[in-house]
Write a protein that binds this DNA or RNA. Sequence first.
DNA 1: CCCAAACTACGAAACTGTTCGTAATTTGAC
DNA 2: GTCAAATTACGAACAGTTTCGTAGTTTGGG
Lengths: 130, 130
Amino acid sequence: MARDKTIPRPTQAETAILQVLWQRGPSTVRDIHEVLNGERTMGYTTVLKLLQIMYDKGLVRRDESRRSHLYQAVSSQRRTQQQLVTDLLDRAFGGSMRNLVMHALSSRKTSRADLAEIRGLLDELEEKQR
Amino acid sequence: MARDKTIPRPTQAETAILQVLWQRGPSTVRDIHEVLNGERTMGYTTVLKLLQIMYDKGLVRRDESRRSHLYQAVSSQRRTQQQLVTDLLDRAFGGSMRNLVMHALSSRKTSRADLAEIRGLLDELEEKQR
DNA sequence: CCCAAACTACGAAACTGTTCGTAATTTGAC
DNA sequence: GTCAAATTACGAACAGTTTCGTAGTTTGGG
């Protein structure tokens, strides 16, 4: 039950749970367990335990007013993804954003629509720097 | 000493060591320890042990012909970064490259030169898809 | 040849993340 | 009110990571 201001980086299993919470909004353990069992195998009590740990860490809030507690992510998907990216950036790319983006773009096929959107963002960023 | 074909994803501490190897080329434990102690604190035997573990995992090669063994990374920086990026992609971005790149670009100031280079890559990718 | 210094090997402890079994609690149906 | 089903709480096992102490080995200088 100890919580403080700084939210830690979610682990792998925790990230899987957060994905579900971001997608579904406030969810019960059962909800999450059902979604997750489509992809990986994870026992019900494992999901529960993880949520309890995440609650202790401050990664999720919970509403205990009902029999089945409702959990929701504290940090938005956007903010968390940002955190994970900068983390990887410092950890493995020596802080070089150009390097990371170049690798990312090269590593997977990206649709034309996506490329166009990224180009749009580039325009914006260059405009700002002018 | 057991090694097989597939190289596992390096852990956090291992990645720090790999950074040094990529930067310096073949290095002794002492070399790596000295570089690393500029940034984090890590005992000499800790670095040694990690390198032994990495050797078992197949992450590094070593030359034992000299008194001080020379270690070098098996996988190139490029390949490893690629691995880490796609890993993060699936883990936290639902496989959406657009999403990852957009976040990356937004999260840190990027120089005009870097933006230009990324734009160049975009041009290339769009050309290929035509 | 002998010793000190540098090095490697190895085991074990501390820590974190993940898993799940079991016990206790709550709730609704009857 | 009682019971079964669903739920939460909790502890413990297990695996992987990181740390370092200690012991043994090698080497060069004297």
